[in-house]
Design a protein around this nucleic acid. Structure first.
Length: 446
RNA sequence: UGGGGUGUAGCUCAAUUGGCAGAGCGCCGCACUGUUAAUGCGGUGGUUGGUGGUUCGAGUCCACCCGCCCCAGCCA
């Protein structure tokens, strides 16, 4: 038997060597054991096909009645959808097999039976049913493909920042400070009163940037808004880089570079997954720097010419964003929004004090806001004034103001929504499939 | 929180003007040596989301309630 992955003894069962399906091509002609779950079962009386899934791929196992002993043949009757099995046999190339290789079965061992009521059939299901069965839905090929793209994108993000000398800093999830005005999840915190689940790590990121130069955070974020759209989750993952001595132009250059890096990484290392997801990769191949940079003021003019009722000062609606991006084959920056439409910590635009130095990066194909970023207000007095204007509790921001009090510094940063980015790369209609166990307004289980 | 939908078998859906609640898939049985969501034949399967009302009769009409989906807002 070919020696493949070595494993240890677990519980009462002795697990010996076994092969992973994605590596099977290396074992052509050898006899191996594959461990996995049955996904398709077809029998013709004297020949039986078991399609096996092990998380790395799928494998067709062929069992011919006259080539196996009666006991092994009889075990086929116990195979049902999602029965876990160990199958031993010879690997052989065969054009009739999905994946190019199949296994000529000599031994079939049932590890864990699976009752006949396995909910997910190889057919169309409604989204509500699938989400109720999310713990089982994850076993489907499309969900595996999404999970692999997510994994690759996450790794690429770490690689991108590691290569550029950024420090990865973890910021608290439980916090007393309030970053933005959006809805917050509350919880009791010992004798300290109310704590909130973090909706951004940015303020902490700014403190870390003053300490370490260039940093990024990578973690979960919570929003208690009752959002029910294809672009929103109540719990999502966000990456928030913060860079000392970067102005807004440098900030956008970095965003551009990151997005291109992630797209290229997915194109080169997730080609099979994107194919499984039927993603039109030609829409990704055009994503190269530079991205268009449109000022908010110009955007309003353009939108009004296209028939939008938007007025200067309004935030862009979803329809406006779609209109604006429709003409482009790559993401688009909309820069320098009116002060009132954005958060208190954004730096006033010296060229037009009605606006702030910021940009949203809108994904093309209508995926909406992928990145929101800005240069931060580094003037102590102006920041205090903005906190007052927004009627925010000044005492909660004492430590944040210290960052301007003790050696203020030009700095910028942004937040990139992980699920939105991946949904866009995968071409999915809704971001809920991008995370293993989505948290939405009407869903906290499984 | 608004606007628009929807709820019938385990799943996906149908049911004409109100008139015996159905199909496909799944599952069970039989047949079949190369299947690709196998196929053929036979079988199994229901508190029509809930409560009340109209009617000889309600899945269908009316009222209220509940769940979910889509869109918008909030934002990444």
């Amino acid at each position: 038997m070919a020696r493949c992955t070595r494993s240890s003894t677990r519980g009462s069962e002795r697990v010996t060597t076994f092969a992973r399906i994605e590596e099977l091509g290396k074992h052509d002609g050898a006899t191996v054991t594959v461990r996995g779950w049955c996904t398709h079962l077809r029998s013709s009386g004297k020949i039986a096909f078991i399609v096996l899934r092990d998380g790395t791929g799928t494998l067709q196992c062929v069992m011919v009645k006259k080539e196996v002993d009666d006991l092994t043949w009889a075990r086929y009757a116990d195979c049902t959808l999602e029965t876990s099995v160990a199958v031993t046999g010879a690997v052989r190339a065969d054009t009739r097999a999905p994946g190019g290789y199949e296994l000529g079965v000599t031994t079939l061992e049932i590890i864990g039976t699976s009752p006949l009521d396995y909910p997910i059939q190889p057919k169309e299901h409604g989204i509500d049913f699938l989400l109720d069965n999310r713990h089982l839905w994850l076993r489907s090929p499309k969900q595996r493909a999404i999970a692999r793209v997510r994994h690759e994108v996450e790794q690429a993000i770490h690689d991108f920042f590691y290569e550029r000398g950024f420090l990865h800093v973890d910021t608290p999830i439980l916090t007393a400070a309030i970053g933005e005005r959006a809805g917050l999840f509350e919880t009791e915190y010992f004798d300290e009163g109310t704590a909130y689940l973090a909706q951004t790590g940015q303020l902490y990121g700014e403190a870390a940037a003053a300490a370490f130069g260039r940093i990024y955070t990578f973690g979960p974020t919570f929003r208690a808004e009752k959002s029910k759209t294809r672009r929103h989750l109540t719990e999502f993952w966000m990456i928030e880089p913060e860079m000392a001595w970067y102005d807004q132009a440098m900030n956008q250059d970095l965003q551009e570079e990151l997005v291109c890096f992630l797209v290229q990484r997915a194109l080169t290392r997730c080609a099979a997954e994107l194919k499984e997801l039927e993603r039109d990769v030609s829409k990704l191949e055009t994503v190269v720097a530079p991205f268009p940079r449109i000022s908010y003021t110009d955007a309003v003019t353009t939108l009004q010419a296209k028939g939008s009722s938007i007025q200067w000062g309004d935030d862009l609606g979803a329809e406006d964003e779609a209109l604006l991006v429709a003409d482009h084959d790559r993401p688009v920056f909309v820069c320098n929004y009116p002060k009132e439409a954005k958060a208190f910590y954004m730096k006033e635009n010296p060229a037009d004090p009605r606006t702030v130095l910021c940009a949203d990066l809108l994904a093309h194909e209508g995926y909406g806001e992928m990145i929101g970023g800005s240069q931060r207000e580094d003037d102590y007095d102006k920041l205090v004034q903005r906190i007052k204007e927004e009627k925010l509790p000044m005492d909660a921001y004492g430590w944040y103001l210290d960052l301007r009090k003790y050696g203020t510094f030009t700095h910028s940063g942004f937040g990139i929504g992980l699920e939105r980015t991946i949904a866009w790369i995968c071409g999915l209609p809704h971001i809920r499939e991008v995370i293993a166990f989505p948290r939405m307004m009407h869903r906290v289980r499984p």
